[in-house]
Design a protein around this nucleic acid. Structure first.
Length: 113
DNA sequence: AGCTTGCAGCGTCAGAGCTT
DNA sequence: AAGCTCTGACGCTGCAAGCT
């Protein structure tokens, strides 16, 4: 199955200048509980053992990716929340500026009677 | 009660980009 | 170059709300 190519990183910092970085690459050394490290490849012999090793590697990769996806979604949610609260703040600020502008217009406009 | 629809969350895959 | 992490996309599932 072919997927569309995209290269979005989610890092909006360049555009906004002051938003927190969405994608934070931290070293993830901790393994989920119950994960046992593999024996070195040199210690494998039979096709049976090789197949088991491949299966084990795949399960480990899936498990890690599962956790990574959860963490990614958590960060994204946080990021969206942050954006939403920023929108709220900017809306209030915008409203105030418009009001201020109207007040200044009133003050500066020539009286007609 | 049964059906439909919309939403949220999950697991997986694929691909980009970083690290070793 | 190989291995790893991160994340968009996709498909699936469960739940709640609205409709018949």
């Amino acid at each position: 199955m072919q997927k569309p190519i995209m290269a979005v990183t989610g890092d909006e910092t360049a555009a906004t200048g002051d938003m927190p970085t969405y994608q934070i690459r931290a070293p993830t050394t901790a393994l989920p509980q119950g994960v046992v490290m593999a024996a070195s490849p040199g210690s494998l012999h039979s096709p049976q053992q090789l197949a088991e090793e491949a299966t084990r590697k795949r399960e480990l990769r899936l498990m890690k990716n599962r956790e990574a996806a959860k963490e990614c979604r958590r960060r994204k949610k946080e990021y969206v929340k942050c954006l939403e609260s920023r929108v709220a703040v900017l809306e209030v600020q915008n409203k105030k500026l418009i009001e201020e502008l109207e007040t200044l217009k009133d003050i500066c406009s020539p009286k007609t009677d």
